[in-house]
Amino acid sequence: MHNYLHIPLWPFSQLYGGIMRLRNLGYDKGLLPSRQFDLPVIAVGNLTVGGTGKTPHVEYLMRLLQSYKVATLSRGYKRQSKGFILADASSTAAILGDEPFQYHADFKDVNVAVCEDRVKGLEQLQQLVPELEVVVLDDAMQHRPVQPSLNLLITDYNRPFYKDYVLPAGRLREPRSGAKRADAVIVSKCLQSISTKEREQMVGQVQRYTSPGTPVFFSTFAYADPVSIGKAAAPTKNAVLLTGIANAEPLKNYLSSQGYTLLRHLSYPDHHLYTSDNLKELKELLQQPGYAGATVLTTRKDAVKLTDAGLLPLTLALPIFFVPIEVQFIAEGEKFDQLVLQHVQSRL
């Protein structure tokens, strides 16, 4: 291990990893129940704790599958509700969780549901949406009670799973061998300039842990011009960055490359639910010397919470913009699309 501070945690990682291996063995041998469904169920997940870019990839799939009747099913992490909920006009980020609420806000034709128990959630979706054709499971790699028909594993280019360790010494939720369940692997957050040689090297490393022949794809983030959700029509180059996400480094690097000067980064924990006090503090910061005329930049995930009904009046009074983001595949995007579309067509 490269960081000697991890050494005291290694015995705990071995214990946790052993428990996860036994759990996976129970599912693999049929000793623990795992349910298949009679429609395409595409799981998007990872082996690590947070920050691999699952949300933009789920959105990519929803755009790809727009000709089908699609639903997404998430746990609804940190939501202030319980049980199965199908999003409607009264839904909020607090009720659904921030990522499902983002899907609901941006994809009007997609049925967005949350449920801690994915088996019950899928059953409910099929009852309530009888014309349903495809379900995308968000963050479901470790939810073994559901057996997806297509399992997509995402790993961060900057911290690939094959260089990481099981919690608490590292950030893996389960041992690297969990990659064997993947039907395809996506290396996310790549530099657009990644070379063919480096991709080939990473494919070799990834395929040490996957089933033979598992395809490996590479994706990057494409950012667009900031979109106003506040009082200003156009952003200035002096900016305060406001985020409640797992890893803001790619966004910070992009903004720096676009000539923005980040005066300050207000970084909240992932899935943070903003309060009126947060926005009042932000307003006070913008009134301090050195911040005159500064723009506030944030993510789409944060923006859907900042424009919730309770905070909207405060947001509208501030120069806040979100930076749109989309996934782009490097080199083999058409092959990935065909893999997904052919799978869906074969299951209908």
Rank of each mutant, 00 (worst) to 15 (best):
N253R: 09
R264A: 09
D277S: 14
N247P: 03
D225F: 06
Y254D: 06
V227P: 02
Y223G: 01
T261Y: 11
R264P: 02
L279M: 09
E249W: 12
L285A: 13
A234K: 14
A246K: 03
F221R: 04
H272R: 03
K283M: 12
N278G: 06
R208E: 10
K252Q: 08
L241K: 07
L255S: 00
Q258N: 05
N278R: 05
S195W: 05
H265S: 07
S257R: 11
F217E: 01
S211R: 15
K280G: 05
N247K: 11
T214G: 02
V216D: 03
S276M: 06
Y268F: 15
T275V: 08
K231N: 08
E281C: 02
K189W: 03
N253D: 12
S211L: 11
D270C: 11
L242I: 04
A222L: 12
Q288H: 09
P250C: 01
I229N: 10
Y268Q: 08
C190K: 03
H271Y: 03
N238I: 04
S193R: 14
L242W: 06
S211Y: 07
M202Q: 14
E200F: 07
N238K: 14
T214A: 02
L266M: 13
A248V: 07
G204P: 01
K231F: 02
Y260D: 07
L273T: 13
E281D: 13
S219E: 05
V187P: 03
L241D: 04
E284P: 01
S211N: 13
T243Q: 07
H272E: 10
L242S: 02
F218C: 12
N253I: 08
V240M: 13
M202L: 15
L273G: 08
Q205A: 14
E200Q: 15
V227K: 14
S276C: 06
A234M: 11
T261Q: 15
V187Y: 03
E198W: 01
V216Y: 09
I229Q: 08
T220Q: 14
L282E: 04
L241T: 13
A246F: 00
L279W: 09
S257D: 14
S228W: 08
Q192C: 10
T220L: 12
L263H: 04
L191A: 11
S211M: 13
V216P: 01
H271G: 06
T243H: 02
N253Y: 09
Q258S: 06
Q192L: 15
N278P: 07
T261F: 12
L286P: 01
H265D: 05
V240G: 04
V203Q: 14
E249K: 12
L255M: 05
L285R: 11
P212G: 10
T196A: 15
T261P: 12
E281I: 01
Q192E: 15
Q258I: 03
T261V: 14
R199H: 10
S211H: 12
Q192Y: 14
